[in-house]
Amino acid sequence: MKIKVVIFDADKTLWDHYNISEFEDPIKIINKNEIEDAKGRKLKVFPDVRETLEELKKKGIILGLATWNYPDKTQKILQILDLYKYFDVIVSRDFPYKFIMINEILSELRNKGIKIKPEETMFIDDRRSHFGNVWLYLGNIKCVEMWKDIKCHSEILHMLD
């Protein structure tokens, strides 16, 4: 079945930092793919992320974000990096349960009249440990472990069918 929705994790999946919730203002832009917070913590967007998100949008794929971070920090970092515009639904929570976040994303799409089956959904995360509950509670979602199942973001484009 064709993939209609791709849901990304953020930390260690879209960028190299492990926890953007700890970032403190002011945040300095080093370049379009790199920022630094008040304490010198740096974050760098992984190669191919922007191009892959743009290509997914061109293909009509709905993009979601499910991240274990404080919502205000997620929104701020996505806006500073100019990545916010790519995501149709963003769910950022202060708990690690990705299956709950993915369910929220799919529910929000249903509320907008977009019905998505589990097998039409792809979830990309750097931690395989989240996949068990995704499958248990949500069904046959295609889960992809970043850096193990794929080595770069552009490989996602070849996994859509």
Rank of each mutant, 00 (worst) to 15 (best):
W68D: 09
K59N: 11
D88E: 02
E36I: 11
D16Y: 02
A38I: 11
R110S: 06
C152A: 06
I77W: 04
V6K: 00
E36L: 15
K148N: 12
H158A: 12
A66I: 00
P47A: 00
R128T: 00
W68F: 02
D9H: 10
A10G: 04
I30K: 04
W135Y: 10
I90S: 02
D48F: 10
L157D: 13
D161H: 00
F99H: 09
H130A: 01
P118I: 07
E108Q: 08
M122N: 13
H153C: 13
E145A: 02
V134S: 06
E145V: 03
L136N: 06
P96Q: 08
K59H: 15
I3D: 02
D37H: 03
G40D: 04
D161V: 00
T52H: 03
Q79E: 11
A10R: 06
T67H: 05
D82H: 11
K76T: 05
P96F: 07
Y84Q: 10
L157Y: 14
K28G: 01
E22I: 11
D126I: 14
T13A: 10
L78W: 06
W147D: 09
I116F: 02
R50M: 13
E104C: 15
F23G: 01
K76V: 09
S129W: 09
R50A: 07
T67N: 13
P47F: 00
I124M: 02
L65Y: 07
G40K: 12
K44Y: 07
E24F: 10
V45C: 10
I141F: 00
E108C: 04
I141P: 01
L106R: 03
I30Y: 10
K115H: 05
N111L: 08
R41Q: 11
L81S: 08
N133H: 13
I29F: 02
D48E: 07
M1S: 14
G60H: 03
L78V: 14
V5M: 08
K148E: 07
H17E: 03
I20E: 07
G113V: 03
K44S: 14
